[in-house]
């Protein structure tokens, strides 16, 4: 945790910490505590009167079918993105890990979408699938597929999932590749000599040794869907049509916008905080495991 050799000094260590603690205090702890406080308040329609209502905002939330629907949407969204992007990335990483020519070039060509802003990714995909002008939307119509993400909720969700998956593959690919490369070659060769077929080697040797990476990425992908897809959704669907693509974070933003329902928005924030704490805890438990591995 600390060095054997340390410096003396009474004020210097505090001075060095000051900038970070200042930002953290003013822009993290203070607003977070405000969010908690606001979640217990109710404002009247004109924002003139506020009253302390204890858990009223939470009760209302949990009595609201819409909130459960948003939760379900977020869950489905997370499962689809994690499932799709993890399996595609693993497929690509396994191929890139083989001794092939130009492995480095393929790697470069696969990782850059990480750098694309979520909102921009949203624009790219809406442009392809926009019913009236999208090239792919046209092609689908020619094949007789009925497709309209502007009206059909499932189509919209699928579209958002595709854009989110597209952006996340590069991240998962990179970590899978690193994980694969850290598996000792000798282990795989030993399995080959033991007569395990290529497929068998994958399922019985490679995947188990890769499981820490898989667990880690599942958590990261869930966090990604929760928070980082905000820009994708806002650029593509604004949560619609009729809330079919509204995630928990998007709802916080939407409900509190223009001072709409700040109390409810704050209560949702607090619930999200609890979820982040849980996810972080899982992640750190996992890291401990990784160290022990």
């Amino acid at each position: 945790m600390q060095k054997r050799a340390i410096f003396g000094g009474k004020t210097l260590p505090y001075l060095l910490l000051l900038p970070q603690l200042f930002v953290v205090g003013v822009f993290f702890y203070w607003p977070a505590s405000q969010a908690v406080w606001q979640s217990f308040l109710l404002e009247d329609a004109f924002g003139l009167n506020t009253s302390f209502v204890w858990f009223e905002n939470y009760k209302e939330l949990f009595a609201d079918a819409g909130y459960y629907r948003t939760m379900l949407t977020t869950g489905v969204f997370a499962i689809m993105v994690a499932g799709l992007s993890l399996s595609l990335a693993l497929l690509l990483a396994v191929q890139a890990d083989k001794s092939i020519h130009g492995a480095g070039v393929y790697k470069t060509l696969l990782i850059w979408p990480y750098a694309v802003a979520p909102a921009v990714a949203g624009v790219l995909w809406i442009f392809m699938f926009q019913p009236s002008l999208g090239v792919i939307a046209h092609a689908m119509r020619n094949f007789g597929i009925d497709w309209n993400p502007l009206l059909n909720g499932n189509d919209a969700l699928l579209l958002v999932v595709m854009a989110s998956t597209w952006k996340q593959i590069s991240y998962n690919f990179l970590f899978f590749l690193a994980g694969l490369q850290s598996i000792p070659r000798a282990v795989i060769e030993a399995a080959a000599i033991d007569g395990a077929s290529r497929t068998r080697r994958f399922w019985t040797i490679i995947l188990p040794l890769l499981s820490p990476t898989v667990f880690f990425l599942v958590v990261v992908n869930i966090v990604y869907v929760f928070f980082d897809t905000f820009g994708i959704i806002d650029a593509m669907t604004q949560g619609g049509p009729s809330k079919a693509t509204e995630t928990l974070v998007y709802k916080v933003f939407f409900d509190g916008r223009l001072g709409g329902n700040l109390g409810s928005s704050a209560a949702q924030s607090v619930i999200l905080m609890v979820m982040v704490v849980a996810l972080t805890a899982v992640q750190f438990r996992f890291i401990e495991r990784k160290v022990a591995y």
Partner: peptide
């Protein structure tokens, strides 16, 4: 001090968006 910094991992901007906006 270390923990004060560490815990902010769990407070992404999305969960404290309006109060942070108000302070800014």
């Amino acid at each position: 001090a270390f923990w004060l910094i560490f815990v902010t991992l769990m407070l992404p901007v999305e969960v404290r968006i309006y109060p942070t906006y108000k302070i800014a």
